[in-house]
């Protein structure tokens, strides 16, 4: 790791100012991606701005319309929240399957969505449930937020403060992990939302995407059989030593089927 200047501001405004002022500043929430990257010397930021001192970014609020999770809320806390489990059980289950226990104890929802790793779990939930990302400057619909591989709508100095998920009548997430890293090789989040069924896929492509054909099939009939024969084209999907694009495409259908079955 190269050395850097460390800041721990107490407010979002101070954090935004600190990162803007730095010549090459980086925000850090849980650090679960940033620190390994720094250790490998694949980045050389001048300044690291730790959001851990901003206490009002932590917390979970649940009401009749949905769940709002503060950006610095840890995965483990979402997973173990009885309120989340009651309102959107699939969300709690997803959070409980991110990384490993130690990653969940440090990693945060804000960090995960801002990083937008192509194999991250949360983006699938945000897109499938039609969540809204709130930043220090605005509110962004999940679909407008995730732009591509590691790419989001966030501007320099813009900081995710919370994510709001509307409830869904049915929802489930099924992940096929990479056997080595345990990241999602394919993860499919299905939800029966107020605006109809939504199917969001992570891990398979460069970034989270929806599968319209499955959504249409589910609109006709919410059943595992409805998606069982919907094939996703392999073209454009990720390929690596663990899974070809064809295998990933196949797994999208299998995981979708299982997710629908699990959602009931």
């Amino acid at each position: 790791m190269y050395d850097f200047a460390y800041h721990k501001p107490k407010s979002v405004a101070d954090a935004a100012a600190a990162v803007k002022k730095a010549s090459d500043g980086k925000l850090m929430s849980g650090g679960m991606t940033l620190i390994p990257t720094l250790k490998q010397r694949l980045a050389h930021p001048s300044d690291v701005v730790d959001l851990a001192g901003v206490s009002d970014l932590v917390g979970i609020k649940v009401d009749a319309t949905g769940v709002t999770i503060g950006a610095m809320t840890k995965h483990a806390d979402v997973a173990s929240s009885a309120d989340v489990a009651r309102a959107i059980p699939a969300l709690a289950a997803l959070a409980g399957g991110i990384g490993d226990r130690q990653v969940r104890n440090r990693g945060t929802i804000g960090g995960s969505v801002a990083n937008n790793d192509p194999a991250a779990d949360y983006p699938a939930a945000l897109v499938a449930l039609g969540a809204t990302v709130t930043t220090n400057e605005r509110k962004i619909a999940a679909e407008d937020f995730f732009k591509g591989m590691f790419e989001t709508a966030l501007k320099d100095g813009e900081i995710v403060t919370s994510v709001s998920f509307p409830t869904a009548t049915k929802a489930a997430y099924m992940k096929f992990p990479n056997p080595a890293s345990r990241y999602a090789m394919v993860g499919v989040f299905v939800a029966q939302t107020a605006s109809g069924p939504r199917v969001a896929v992570t891990g398979a492509g460069p970034a989270v995407f929806r599968v319209k054909a499955m959504e249409e099939a589910l609109a006709k009939s919410w059943s595992a059989d409805a998606v069982a024969n919907v094939k996703v084209p392999a073209e454009g999907l990720n390929s690596d030593i663990h899974a070809s694009a064809e295998y990933r495409a196949h797994l999208v259908t299998v995981m979708a089927k299982r997710a629908v079955a699990a959602a009931g």
Binding site: K8, P36, K39, A52, N105
Partner: peptide
Amino acid sequence: CDTSQCGACVVDVDGASAKSCTILAVQAE
């Protein structure tokens, strides 16, 4: 390891297990 996977470095930080190879000392202030 250097990718936060092996868990040989796990310690307890404020009541929760954590990988001490993926935490800066200053974060544990």
